[in-house]
Simulated scan of single mutants.
Amino acid sequence: MPITTIPPQDADKAMAKGATLVDIRGADEHAREHIAGAIHVPLTRLNELPKVAGPIIFHCKSGMRTQANEAALQAAAASVPCHILEGGLDGWRAAGLPTRLDRKQPLEIMRQVQMAAGGLVLLGVLLGFLVAPVFFSLSAFVGAGLMMAGATGWCGMAKLLQLMPWNRPFPGA
């Protein structure tokens, strides 16, 4: 049975009737903001999806990740009817439906990477023009790192940022 998309309002009604909403985003994304009642099963751990009786609605941030992994989601759902939340969490929020936002959680790692990379590129360009052209190499280094991350799926900057104190759980938490 093919996966169909479902608008946020219809997904909300389906959940009220027993459908299971599954958040496939990373742990950092889910901790920062999620839909109440959604179970968290990251895309990398779909094999741990619990067995459910009713339909399953998968969601990510924008709907792109769920659509790109449609075959894996369908396989994980087995014979249960499944849907993709149209627009993901962003679509849910845009429809005026509530989410749980925890501003005490750090920004998602990929947003931190984007901010750090953008800042380093800008710094390299500014220093290249204002101090010495050798600083343009900083921008080139960051650009090469981003290209490598896109090509391989491994991001050294993300790994480094995950080690930062603001991304570690507090003792006793």
Score class of each variant (00 low, 15 high):
M64S: 13
R100E: 14
A78P: 01
A27W: 00
A78T: 10
R111H: 14
P7I: 02
N69L: 12
A173G: 01
P50M: 06
K51W: 03
L101E: 09
G172R: 03
M164A: 13
L46K: 06
R65A: 01
F170C: 08
L122Q: 04
E48T: 13
F129V: 15
G88E: 06
A16N: 03
G145R: 07
L21G: 04
A77G: 11
E70T: 12
L138V: 15
L160Q: 06
R111W: 14
N69C: 12
L163V: 00
E108C: 07
G128Q: 12
D12L: 03
M157D: 07
R168Q: 15
H40P: 02
Q114D: 12
H83R: 09
F141R: 04
K61V: 14
Q9N: 10
A94M: 08
G172A: 03
P50V: 06
L161Q: 01
A14Q: 05
P7T: 11
V131G: 04
A77N: 10
D102K: 04
Q74V: 09
G37R: 10
T4M: 05
L89R: 08
I6T: 12
T152Y: 13
R103W: 03
T99Y: 02
A95K: 04
G156T: 12
F58T: 08
A71H: 12
V52K: 07
Q105C: 05
K61L: 15
Q162N: 10
P42T: 08
K104I: 05
H59P: 07
H83S: 10
M115S: 06
K159L: 15
H30W: 15
V113W: 00
I57H: 03
L122V: 11
I57K: 05
I3S: 02
R93N: 08
E108S: 10
G87Y: 02
